[in-house]
Computed example of a mutant assay.
Amino acid sequence: MGIRRISRETALQFLYQEDFTITQGQEFGYDLEERFDLFCTLFQVNKKAKSYALSLLKGICPRLDEIDSQISKAASNWRLSRIAATDRNLLRIAVYEIIYGDNVPAEVAINEVVEIAKKFAGEESPKFINGILDAILTGQKS
C-alpha cells in the first residue's frame, strides 16, 4: 500500500473523529496542525504519511462548506447528515482532490476513496461513493 493511500486513510480517520465534534456545534476553530499532531501521536500514524494527510486536511477544513455543498448537489435524494460518516468523509477527501487538488487526476482520487471504502465502510458504500463522485466529476466537465 502506497504512502498516499495511508495518508488518505489517516485523513479519513481524523475527519471521522472531528465530524462528531462539528456536529456538536463546534467548528474547525482550533490549531489544525496541533490537533493533528496529537492525533498522530495517539494513533501512531506512519511518519511518511503525515505530510500528505495534513496537506489534505489543510485543504478540506477551510473549504468544508463548499465541499459539502458539492456533495449535497450530487447526492440527490440524500441529505448530507444522512450519509454515513465514513462515506461523507471519504467523499470530502475525493471532492477536495478533484476540485482543488492539482497533482492527482480525478480518476485516481475516485479510485483511491472507493478502495478505502471497501476497507472502512459498508458493503454498498463503494458503489454509492463512486456514483456521487461520478456525478460531481460530470458536473465539473460540463
Rank of each mutant, 00 (worst) to 15 (best):
L91G: 01
G2I: 06
L15N: 03
L56R: 01
F36M: 05
A135Q: 11
T23F: 11
Q24E: 14
A121S: 11
A109P: 11
V45K: 00
A74Y: 07
R35F: 10
T41Q: 15
N103E: 12
M1T: 08
F128R: 09
R5W: 08
P105S: 08
E9L: 09
A53E: 00
T10R: 01
W78P: 03
S125P: 01
I67F: 01
R79F: 12
Y100C: 07
C40N: 03
A11N: 02
Y96V: 05
Q13S: 14
I99F: 13
L137Q: 14
A85D: 10
G139N: 15
S81F: 10
A106P: 02
K58I: 00
Q140P: 10
R92L: 03
G101M: 07
P105I: 11
R79L: 12
R79E: 12
D68G: 06
G101E: 02
N89P: 00
N111G: 12
L12S: 02
D87F: 06
N111H: 13
V108N: 13
E27I: 15
R8Q: 07
I110A: 00
L80A: 06
V108W: 08
D102V: 13
V45H: 00
V113F: 04
N46H: 08
V104E: 09
V113L: 04
E115L: 13
A135E: 15
F28G: 05
A135V: 06
Q44H: 15
Y30E: 12
D31C: 10
I136G: 08
G131D: 08
I71Q: 01
G139M: 14
I99R: 13
T138I: 13
I71D: 04
S51R: 13
R79I: 07
A106G: 05
S125A: 08
A84Y: 09
F39S: 03
Y96W: 12
P62M: 07
G25P: 08
F14P: 13
L57I: 12
S76N: 10
E124H: 12
L56D: 00
I98L: 09
R63I: 07
F20P: 02
K73T: 13
I60W: 01
A49L: 02
F20H: 09
A85C: 11
V104P: 05
I71R: 06
L90V: 01
Q24Y: 15
D68P: 00
L133G: 02
I67A: 02
I93G: 00
Q24V: 00
S142A: 12
R88N: 11
